[in-house]
Design a protein around this nucleic acid. Structure first.
Length: 647
RNA sequence: GCCGAUGUAGCUCAGUUGGUCAGAGCAGCUGAUUUGUAAUCAGCAGGUCGUGGGUUCGACUCCCUCCAUCGGCUCCA
């Protein structure tokens, strides 16, 4: 019999009969492996475990602990969901049902509305079907036959999908009575799925286009063990406790007011303190990198945005007009700072010796976000960008871009944002009319970003269609408590605005040249950055940022005067300190201040007053014993120094 | 903006089929206590039950409008 050579991930090679399946190979290695394996890859191509392997190849067996294994598991789970739905809602039509980062969903067009109240019923049906361990069967059919099947079934969404496919054979997968158009791979049977949780229902436009019909999307997650689901649910609960909206209220950092307006955050004293510290931190870094602060108004004439191209791109409904009594002038709230900074560039003739020019501004901008898009501090209608625009010569572009990457990385490192994605956001190659500027300039800008990211050794992902309309971006994405991705830092190369504003500098050749602009915001916006920082720290800010670094707790009211004296001394030494003067027991004061995430508590009573000492208690570490106020100050200063000194 | 859900005191939440159901805890105020490392005790005050309509003898409870919030979708200069 003909033999094929299988290469395993450890480099070992074994021979098997041609037509052996991945499952049989797993069985030959160990029964345990055969039980745990979910799908396989041959030369990087994912396949079903039961598919005969006919060529020599490198084989990977995917288990639950590998992303590909989970993908297969959840993909089959979505088919199980579909099967349950079809049996409960005859006549239901199906869109798509993929696996996602945490689970899967299926988009359906149901004959009756499905709401969250229906989920337990559907879950139960899924469990019932999974228990029967229905085999998942693959079948290949010609395109014409596939079309016929779904046309007869009346499933117009699948018909649409098949029509768009290339001619040739199309694979079907069936579990029980349900058959789906699907590339696979899938689990051998639905019995692998032991724990099921349908998490939510939501509307989702067919093919992601808001002009299309809205389908019902059902989200779920499944596991091979019941205990894993329980752990997951506990994890979710924990994550919810770190929600910045909840912590923002508890720690009195910011608020919203219906009377002020949707999406317009109001910063409370503690939040303002925190934000000011972040701003000063960045100001200092930027000064070292040669930035100059500028200040521009919150409004601008419509003409300004017509010149920049923003007005044509976003339309008048995206701008918030200011009604003024002045004739012939139409003002708009500024949605971005770049046009203002371009005008600053034009203040006087610039020489090649002046460049690069780096104008920085904590610029508050206003954008009309649709009501459904607002989300705590991460998506608001009025926010402050830590903006700057660099005007550079072509020969300076790469170096300046890399310097900005350094600033972003320095900030992320200082704040322990270790898990981020550097995303290169390019044009959608199929939809170039969405963007302004020449192909030549776009290509120059894109290659500059790719080169800079590579030089800096960033691990990047490329996303097409995510560029700004005037230029490509390097975006730094960070996840929030429950795994949603948010763009924080962003760096953009722009050849277009300098042209639109006719910006020039005089070269060594005494001729006018066009500068290139770099737009950049390392935090992204103060609002979003604080939100993500809150969720990452759970409100336990590093000492150098904590709005209140320490609270002095008198043991009883007899020692309030001493406590005030200590607190004043600390404040005079730039330690942010308060006194808890409440008539409460010390245990109570400790509890309340711990819950407020105060990094240090200073306890003073008879012993301390007599010896002119203080007792120090550190957040999540407990009692540090007695010391002098000066020793405490030295300790805090040294800790702050360690926190902010990042190599 | 779209789909779905939610909206009761500053906060977190109870309120059964429409009929003394407007409640609790925390926070607040007053008083007692004068406290040694995660909640001292007692009393008091606090709500047009998101808004505006409607149904009803009677609405926190049922229906509609609007507003806001939450989960998604779309969008994100």
């Amino acid at each position: 019999m003909e033999q094929i050579k299988i290469t395993f991930p450890d480099g070992s090679i074994r021979e098997f009969a041609k037509g052996t399946t991945a499952m049989e190979i797993a069985e030959s290695i160990s029964p345990r492996l055969a039980q745990e394996v979910l799908s396989a890859s041959t030369d990087g191509h994912v396949i079903d475990l039961q598919l005969p392997i006919n060529e020599s190849c490198a084989l990977h067996l995917h288990k639950w602990d590998d992303e590909e294994g989970k993908r297969t598991f959840w993909h089959t789970s979505s088919h199980l969901l579909a099967e349950a739905l079809e049996s409960l809602y005859p006549g239901i039509k199906f869109g798509i049902g993929p696996s996602i980062e945490n689970g899967f969903y299926y988009d359906v067009d149901a004959p009756v509305p499905i709401t969250e109240a229906d989920l337990p019923k559907i879950e139960k049906k899924m469990e019932e079907l999974a228990r029967t361990k229905e085999p998942v069967v693959r079948r290949e059919v010609p395109k014409a036959e596939a079309l016929k099947t779904f046309t007869e079934k009346g499933d117009q969404y699948k018909v649409e999908l098949i029509t768009a496919l290339e001619d040739g054979t199309i694979s079907f997968y069936s579990n029980g009575a349900f058959t789906d158009l699907c590339r696979g791979p899938h689990l051998p049977n639905t019995g692998y799925i032991k724990a099921i949780k349908l998490t939510s229902v939501a509307g989702a436009y067919w093919r992601g286009d808001e002009h299309n019909k809205m389908l019902t999307r059902i989200y779920g997650i499944t596991f091979p063990k019941k205990s894993m689901l329980d752990d997951y649910l506990v994890l979710l609960e924990e994550a919810k406790k770190r929600d910045h909206r909840k912590l923002g209220k508890e720690l009195e950092l910011f608020m919203f007011s219906q009377r002020v307006g949707q999406g317009l955050p109001l910063w409370l004293p503690k939040g303002a303190e925190l934000r000011n510290r972040l701003e000063n931190f960045l100001r200092k870094v930027q000064k070292e990198y040669g930035y100059e602060q500028v200040i521009t108004p919150h409004i601008g004439q419509k003409e300004l945005y017509v010149t920049s191209g923003h007005y044509a791109k976003y339309g008048k409904d995206s701008f918030q007009p200011i009604h003024t009594p002045y004739e012939g002038e139409e003002f708009l709230l500024k949605p971005m700072n770049c046009p203002h900074h371009c005008e600053i560039y034009r203040f006087k003739p610039r020489s090649y010796k002046d460049l690069p020019l780096r104008f920085a501004e904590f610029g508050t901008v206003y954008r009309y976000e649709q009501s459904g898009e607002l989300h705590g501090l991460t998506r608001v209608r009025g926010f402050t960008q830590d903006d700057a625009h660099l005007f550079v010569r072509p020969d300076q572009l790469l170096q300046e871009f890399e310097n900005v990457i350094d600033i972003v990385l320095y900030i992320f490192k200082t704040l322990h944002f270790e898990e981020y994605t550097a995303q290169i956001s390019l044009r959608d190659p199929n939809n170039k009319e969405k963007y302004i500027g020449s192909d030549e300039n776009w290509e120059k800008a894109e290659s500059a970003i790719i080169k800079a990211a590579k030089d800096k050794g960033l691990k990047t992902v490329v996303e097409y269609g995510e560029a700004a309309f005037y230029g490509p971006k390097l975006d730094f994405m960070v996840k929030d408590a429950i795994g949603r991705k948010w763009q924080l830092g962003t760096i953009q190369v722009d050849y277009n605005l300098p042209e639109r504003f006719d910006l020039t500098y005089t070269g060594a050749d005494d001729k006018p040249h066009r500068p290139i602009m770099i737009h950049r915001a390392p935090f992204g916006s103060m609002e979003r950055f604080v939100a993500v920082l809150l969720e990452h720290t759970g409100g336990k800010f590093p000492l150098w940022l904590a709005p209140t670094q320490c609270v002095v707790l008198p043991i009883s009211e007899k020692f309030t005067d001493y406590a005030k004296k200590v607190s004043k001394y600390l404040n005079n030494s730039d330690i942010r300190s308060e006194v808890d003067e409440r008539n409460e027991k010390i245990g109570r004061k400790i509890r309340d201040n711990e819950l407020k995430r105060i990094p240090f508590l200073v306890i003073v009573g008879e012993k301390e007053e007599n010896d002119n000492l203080i007792s120090v208690r550190q957040q999540s570490e407990g009692d540090k014993g007695q010391m002098t106020a000066d020793e405490f100050i030295a300790m805090i200063n040294s800790l702050v120094k360690t926190e902010t000194e990042v190599k």
